[in-house]
Design a protein around this nucleic acid. Structure first.
Lengths: 267, 267
DNA sequence: TACATGTGTCTTTTGTAAGAGACAATCCAG
DNA sequence: CTGGATTGTCTCTTACAAAAGACACATGTA
């Protein structure tokens, strides 16, 4: 009865709006989007907004969210009609930590480093082709380097990024790094060739230092943690003021490399 | 040969309820089962075994696992054909911690307690009607109380369980506690009425002590953490040798209650 | 008062994902 | 070597979940 039928002709390549997503999405994908959206926003979201945020029908999100809340993956936030991550995800996350020696020891090492040096220290890994701060410990300096756990940053912006890509084929690297990734926060643009050259040097040297890349006031020192297979599995890094003396920087790098090497052994 | 179906005329009496299996399941539910199964087993599982474990068709699990691995919720384990939790779940879990003051402070308080007292200390919450050890810190005693984070234990076995159920209707409690839950590890059987009486006493007293319930050598001291609404949101507890003196026990309870009260305020 | 906006629960429709099964490729025990 | 068990990929069908949309009930605000 509805004109729905009439419209059914659907001129195919609709000229107007970007009917970007095929109308019907797998429920699991919706869920994955929901989780990503919550992760990106870092706060409880109303179900209506959630539906908008992941570009899905309200009714679908209602049913999915109910399932997820029942399962404990999500929880209703205080005021009643907002949702955020739930205890179950925390428990699963702890399971991951327990099953992952590198992460377990790496977290500890990073905490130690920041306590010993007073600088911000981070454990970084590749996460589905993106650079991810897996754990960070703030350090004691007055200024705070903004770096929440789980934050994802373009690989070329970081010292760790250069180490993590050591040993990858050029094609793979090109694939991981988008054009936008090469543009620094201040607008400067890196050349892909320079970046790839950096990767080679860093890999050979066994450490990497970048100055004033993400911001003008800090430099980043990083050392690689190797897997048993000899691949760079993670990096630990220190974020220090850009005017840190050559000598102190050298000392810190030595310290970092020693700790990273220790992590490589214990897994 | 779906003789599985053959045997049946599918009594089907239950309209829905736990259609244990056999019928077509929503993908999301399969995923939830997968996660639970991995959590229960605490180790990487082969895809074939996973399919058996969650009682699902192999082809389905293959596709779902691929989605989950691509999404980073699961990761292939070292040898290649086993899966376990992935980094994404860890990141989401950290998000949960960040958004949850009680958990964040509670973890810290528990760590402090076990360091100060040398005893095993735990933070416990209700998780979808089950008692859950959300965080535990081992203590320095030679013997190890087995209590992994995320472990779920029948409510009647614990001091914390008695506190967590304070303020619930009798019917709700009956619903949460199965017959099996009332049977202690050593075979003794609690009476539901006794348990409910315990809950009332514990709630009134503002703390709870149980002796030799889960094992013959320890007693468990617990104090409630209240939400702003006045509900018991969590408990912190200490596991001490059963022969700890009355006096020392009293001191520890006072300490516990003080810390729990502080948590109640800060959220 | 009307009118918009947001929320939560229904029903109906239909596109597609779950499932069964076939297949080749390993792997291992006897 | 052979035969059984396991692994990973593929194809096809149809049962069923995602979507659309109607509804009821709050809000706020002109």
């Amino acid at each position: 009865m509805q004109d729905g039928n009439a419209l059914a002709v659907r001129p195919d390549a609709g000229p107007d709006e970007d009917r970007n997503s095929g109308s019907r999405e797998k429920g699991l994908n919706r869920v994955l989007h929901i989780l990503e959206f919550l992760h990106a926003n870092q706060r409880a979201i109303g179900i209506g907004d959630l539906a908008k945020g992941v570009n899905a029908p309200r009714s679908t999100i209602y049913t999915l969210v109910r399932s997820l809340v029942d399962a404990g993956l999500l929880e209703m936030a205080g005021d009643g009609n907002r949702v955020y991550f739930g205890k179950k995800l925390y428990l699963y996350g702890m399971d991951y930590v327990r099953g992952n020696d590198l992460l377990r020891h790496g977290r500890q090492e990073v905490d130690n480093l920041s306590r010993e040096t007073g600088e911000t220290s981070e454990l970084c890994m590749l996460q589905s082709g993106r650079y991810t701060i897996v754990h960070s410990s703030p350090g004691t300096r007055p200024f705070r380097i903004s770096s929440a756990t789980g934050l994802q940053i373009p690989l070329p912006w970081t010292a760790s990024g250069r180490l993590l890509l050591a040993g990858f084929e050029r094609a793979v690297i090109e694939d991981m790094v988008s054009e936008d990734d090469l543009v620094l926060p201040d607008g400067r643009r890196l050349l892909l060739d320079d970046f790839i050259a950096d990767i080679a040097t860093a890999g050979a040297a066994g450490y990497c230092v970048t100055s004033g890349l993400v911001d003008a006031y800090t430099k980043c020192l990083a050392a690689p943690v190797f897997s048993a297979a000899g691949k760079v599995e993670a990096t630990i890094c220190l974020v220090v003021p850009i005017d840190t003396s050559e000598e102190k920087t050298g000392d810190l790098i030595a310290l970092l490399r020693e700790r990273a090497a220790r992590l490589s052994i214990t897994g």
